[in-house]
Design a protein around this nucleic acid. Structure first.
Length: 717
RNA sequence: GGGCAAGUAACUCAGCGGCUAGAGUACUGCGUUUACAUCGCAGGAGUCACAGGUUCGAAUCCUGUCUUGCCCACCA
């Protein structure tokens, strides 16, 4: 009863209670909604957080956006499904568990594969759903009965089905290529899994003596940032039009420290401006060098191992040294031989593992690739044709730029946690493989041996790419898939536009021949107030759950969405959350006042009111309510959450509280109270997607109408 | 090297051709009027990064410059 309403709004008390009621009601589940006959579905699948994860501000922002949308649509009468779940997040999760084991003095190799996987599953069960619990504190109205995980048994079937589809099309192949190798994680990585960091280093100028001197020239000088790789050089390359080197082309040099003879070749890929214009070619340890080597048919000599140490092929002096030690030694030796011409300071971007920050070692190694040309075109088409729209539109450029210059996707990883490739190796002919989604009874290569499945697992994004449809049951033609697919809206962060969004799009167009969603919202990234990335170690990180504890969930949501304008960055300021808290309190108190009036007189609110004899103030507020409703819809249709919250704030605080409530105090007649109640009820509806808890909690106090939940009330028109 | 975005009050941001450039926070003063001091009223606070240009009129459009952040890229 209203008498019991406290003078100030107490979120802590209300929020947990209300959430429990919602869950109990079952209305998060679309099948339990009471709907009109022809109601259309509206589906969002959540970007599945990693099972390593804790909720950060980006998650919170995204969750608020999705929940606001789904609540709005639910009230509009759609059959709404917001499907939650988590991602096994291959390398990321394995690394976290390995780190944990390290504390106990264990490594994955000591433990072995079976035990490590067991450990990871234990970890997943313990912490994996933590983030989903946290989403409940944010008020997310997900259908928890459909919670999915990217390694569920059904999901595994989807992954195999997708893989076999690509395989049978001939798009999956094995290749020996230079890949990004993380010596710590002991696996290959895709280009998107790298982080480039600036590093101060040197450019070393090394003299390679000519076999036959040309005039006074006794050597050719190459410039390199990685002198240790010279031990694996198989050529020196110059630009064909470079006048300085024309007569060198076709000659040979003696590779210092190894005394191998290697040719001087010409390739137009070179930049004559860089260094000396002559490039040492190390096909086993550089992508560009491998490309040159392929054209010129040069051999590759692997001098660095997958552990990041020099191999025997580097020569006995260097074998088993770390890369950095080898570098030092090479330079020392060169100096001794007077073959080091000079050293220059040089700053460059070096690639690092996005999960463990180790320096990446380009390494030649056998890997599995997915051909991208056809798939990339499908992805381009889906957006060019406007079947999928990005909001804001500018992000389409990022998407197109990547797809236009795409390379084949290296999908194999040498870790243990993930979906093992359904590829089997013939034990008689070890270079022969075949694919099968079940353990094969016999070898389809030799028909004799017992084939073995290869150890590699899939890039974690291969399975994430199937998320919107695998969670609904694909490849089975389930009821859910028929009803809720394609989904409507995807909301996510800009850093996974290519890593994830693009791959979902082509996976869907290829496997299901439908685009997976219509609208892609790329929400602003949240930075600390100083403009830097939020970081725990720098103490600039903000935990959304701390905010919720301090200000309440509604306040946090409202304050954050208030900042969600079309910008691409948000410098987080807590003042906005404070504003949200004050606003929640204002809503609470305006309602408290209205309730006092209404309760006295047992007011009923007509659904389609036909007011008699309205005053100027009455007319004004009713008109403003109408305008606000229409504007709000138009903002939400274009995903402008910031504008929506600004609008509601101004309407409720200034038009309704400051003006109308004040004049209502003076008017004091039965109809005024009805109007007061009517405007309040409709305001609560409009506010609900942005402040679900406090609005629901007030709604539960309203003395009129048969009612269940504000969550499923009719959206005002 | 290429791209994107941003520079407006002390802070975080609106405004994007025409009202004395606005909001929240912070600040100052005054307020116990049947919701709310998490409030109300009033107030101070800004060469709208800089320089040119278009226009009757520019924070807003164009050109250039500077500063900052982010992304992409095989310059060894």
């Amino acid at each position: 009863m209203s008498k019991e309403l406290s003078k100030t709004y107490n979120p802590e008390e209300n929020e947990k209670k209300i959430y429990r009621k919602w869950e109990k009601s079952g209305f998060f589940n679309p099948n339990k909604l009471k709907l009109k006959k022809n109601s259309k579905p509206y589906t969002i699948t959540i970007p599945p957080p990693n099972v390593t994860g804790e909720l950060h501000m980006g998650h919170a922002m995204n969750a608020f956006i999705q929940d606001a949308l789904i609540r709005w649509k639910r009230m509009q009468g759609y059959k709404t499904l917001w499907l939650p779940g988590t991602d096994h997040a291959g390398i990321a999760t394995q690394n976290v568990v390995e780190k944990n084991l390290k504390k106990q003095g264990l490594t994955r190799h000591k433990l072995g594969k079976k035990k490590l996987l067991k450990e990871i599953w234990v970890w997943k069960d313990k912490y994996g759903n933590l983030i989903l619990e946290q989403l409940k504190r944010l008020g997310c109205s997900c259908d928890w009965s459909r919670t999915a995980f990217t390694m569920d048994p059904d999901y595994q079937k989807a992954v195999k089905a997708a893989f076999l589809h690509f395989y049978n099309k001939g798009w999956i192949y094995q290749g020996k290529r230079v890949v990004n190798w993380c010596p710590r994680c002991q696996t290959s990585l895709s280009d998107l899994e790298l982080e480039h960091k600036e590093e101060k280093s040197h450019l070393w100028y090394i003299k390679y003596p000519l076999v036959k001197p040309i005039g006074t020239k006794k050597h050719i000088t190459v410039a390199t940032t990685r002198p240790e790789t010279m031990l694996g050089d198989t050529a020196v390359a110059v630009h064909p039009n470079d006048k300085r080197y024309k007569k060198f082309i076709g000659q040979k040099v003696i590779l210092p420290l190894t005394n191998r003879e290697i040719p001087i070749i010409a390739d137009s890929i070179l930049d004559p401006e860089f260094g000396t214009g002559a490039l040492k070619v190390t096909p086993a340890h550089s992508m560009i060098d491998a490309e040159i080597a392929e054209k010129h048919n040069l051999p590759a000599i692997q001098v660095i191992s997958d552990k990041g140490r020099m191999t025997k092929k580097a020569g006995h002096k260097f074998a088993s040294l770390t890369v950095l030690d080898a570098r030092e030694k090479v330079i020392k030796e060169l100096k001794k031989k007077k073959l080091l011409e000079k050293t220059k300071d040089y700053t460059h971007q070096i690639p690092r593992c996005y999960r463990c920050d180790s320096a990446i070692e380009p390494l030649i190694s056998p890997q599995w690739f997915l051909k991208m040309d056809n798939l990339a075109n499908q992805a381009i088409k889906a957006v060019k044709s406007n079947k999928i729209k990005f909001h804001p539109k500018r992000w389409e450029k990022v998407y197109f730029d990547w797809l236009k210059n795409i390379k084949d996707w290296c999908i194999s990883r040498q870790i243990w946690w993930g979906h093992q490739l359904p590829i089997w190796q013939c034990q008689n002919k070890k270079t022969e493989y075949f694919a099968s989604d079940k353990t094969p009874k016999e070898c389809s290569v030799c028909n004799k041996c017992k084939p073995e499945q290869i150890e590699d697992v899939l890039d974690t994004w291969f399975s994430s790419a199937l998320w919107p449809f695998a969670t609904l049951g694909w490849p089975k033609q389930t009821k859910d898939l028929k009803e809720f697919y394609p989904t409507n809206t995807l909301s996510t962060a800009r850093d996974i536009i290519n890593l994830w969004v693009a791959r979902m799009i082509f996976s869907s167009t290829e496997l299901i021949e439908k685009t997976p969603f219509q609208d892609v919202i790329i929400h602003a990234t949240i930075f600390a107030k100083n403009g830097q990335k939020m970081s725990k170690s720098l103490g600039t990180g903000v935990d959304p759950l701390d905010l919720i504890e301090q200000y309440g969930s509604d306040a946090t949501r409202f304050g954050m969405l208030y900042q969600a304008l079309i910008n691409q960055d948000i410098l987080f300021s807590e003042e906005n959350i404070l504003m949200g808290k004050k606003f929640a309190n204002k809503v609470w108190n305006a309602s408290r006042f209205a309730l006092m009036q209404i309760n006295k007189e047992k007011i009923k609110i007509p659904d389609n009111p036909n007011w008699k004899k309205t005053t100027k103030a009455d007319k004004k507020i009713l008109k403003q309510l109408n305008i606000t409703t229409k504007k709000l819809d138009s903002y939400l249709e274009t995903f402008q959450f910031g504008k929506a919250t600004h609008l509601l704030y101004d309407f409720f605080w200034h038009d309704f509280c400051d003006k109308y409530i004040e004049s209502a105090k003076k008017q004091d007649n039965a109809q005024t109270k009805q109007i007061l109640a009517y405007v309040l009820l409709n305001s609560l509806k409009l506010l609900h997607p942005f402040m679900p808890f406090v609005t629901e909690s007030i709604y539960q106090q309203l003395p009129f109408k048969e009612k269940e939940f504000l969550m499923i009330e009719n959206w005002p028109k």
